[in-house]
Structure formats: C-alpha cells, structure tokens
C-alpha cells in the first residue's frame, strides 16, 4: 500500500526522539547526531539494503545518509517529526549510491549511454522502514521468535528446542509479538482500525 505523499510520523511503530535531542541535532551537535544514529541506524540500514541489496554499498549509504541529514539539519522544519524526513534522505541517498554504482566505468570510451536503473519505490522503502521500527520496538524475546520463524523458517518446536523453552512459551510469545506487530503496523494495511 503506497504511502500518501510523505509518510506521517511518528507512527504507531515506534517512539520518536526527545524534542531537545532533535533541537540539538538541528543545531549541529555531534552528540545529538549519535543519538539520532542510535535510534534510526537500523531503519536507515534496512532502507539502504532494500534499495541496494549489498552490505558494502548499504554501509556507504547509511553513513552518507546521516552525514547528509546532519549537514542539512538546519533546513529541517522545527516541530515536525524527524523520522519521515530522515526516511526521505535515506532513500534518496541509497538511490544516489545505486545510480553511482550503475554508471559505466570511466575508461576513456566514448558515447557513454545512460544506464536504466530499476529504482525501488518509496512504498518499498517506507514499508521496510516501518517494519524495522516496529521490530525494534518489540521486546527482545518476542523479536527473536519472530526472526526465527520468518527469517530462519523454524517451526514452533524447533524454536522451543533452540531456546530451551516449552513449546507453549514459544506460541504465547509468538502470539504476543505478532499482535504487537499488527498493532504497530495497522497503518500499513487496509482495515488497520479493526
């Protein structure tokens, strides 16, 4: 589901930063840059990986995103949530890296042609951002089970053996975790107010 214009934030998927930290970030404070990085580095990374599909390039894009945001922070409108602005910077930066990497090599050949690059849309970047923030907001034990079930493709029984807990515990944590995710991500799906 496409976001309508710029995604509105803060969403239900996570808390924003304290306003004093955002103010300090706008003023160019390096300590505030650290706080912004700590809060959003994983989400920015997820956007970069969604666009680039390469860890080394995602690393470049993540660093460049925070530097660009920090350099341009004074242009960020006070009172607005930082997250959607940072998401926009992250996606643009990742796309710039993708275009740069897709450029023909500078080998003295003539008649270089523009390379058509398939750019992931804002919708994909936004979804990656929102889901990552929602995961970050989960308790560690629930996030671990969701990771093992979806990413590692493990069954309840396998997870229970891996964590050395009863299957019932895995099921209840899985249920709680998915319920929290559903609440946090209700805005991503139609009928989210259900």
């Amino acid at each position: 589901m496409a976001p309508s214009g710029e995604p509105d934030a803060p969403t239900g998927s996570g808390t924003g930063l304290d306003p004093s930290v955002v103010d300090a970030f706008r003023a160019g404070d390096a300590g505030a840059l650290a706080a912004v990085y700590d809060r959003y580095a994983r989400a920015v990374w997820s956007v970069a990986m969604t666009v680039l599909r390469d860890r080394a390039l995602a690393e470049d894009a993540t660093q460049e995103t925070f530097l660009r945001a920090w350099r341009a922070a004074a242009t960020f409108e006070p009172g607005r949530p930082l997250a959607p602005w940072l998401l926009t910077v992250a996606r643009r930066t990742a796309v710039d890296v993708l275009r740069r990497e897709s450029r023909p090599t500078q080998g003295g050949h003539t008649g270089e042609q523009d390379v058509v690059v398939q750019l992931p849309g804002l919708e994909q970047a936004w979804e990656a951002w929102e889901v990552r923030l929602a995961l970050d907001a989960l308790p560690d034990d629930e996030r671990a089970i969701i990771r093992m079930s979806h990413f590692e493709e493990m069954t309840h029984r396998e997870i229970a053996e891996a964590l050395d807990v009863p299957v019932g515990t895995v099921k209840s944590r899985s249920h709680r975790g998915h319920r929290r995710l559903a609440a946090s991500l209700a805005h991503l799906v139609k009928g989210g107010d259900r």
């Binding site: 580095a41 990986m49 599909r53 979804e127 889901v131």
Partner: peptide, 30 residues
C-alpha cells in the same frame, strides 16, 4: 498488504544491521 509485510519479515534487509564500527566512523567524520 499483509502478505507484503510477511515477505518483508523474511527479508535479510530487515534483520541485518550496520557494522558496529560504522557509528564511530560516522562520528569521526562529523
């Protein structure tokens, strides 16, 4: 939309993260 989120939950992009040294490198550059 739900299926899309489910696919996202199985994606490496969601579960990987920046290397720990990136934070120090960023702050050093700043």
């Amino acid at each position: 939309a739900l299926d899309s989120v489910a696919r996202r939950l199985a994606d490496e992009a969601l579960w990987s993260g920046p290397p720990p040294e990136l934070r120090a490198r960023l702050l050093a550059q700043a």
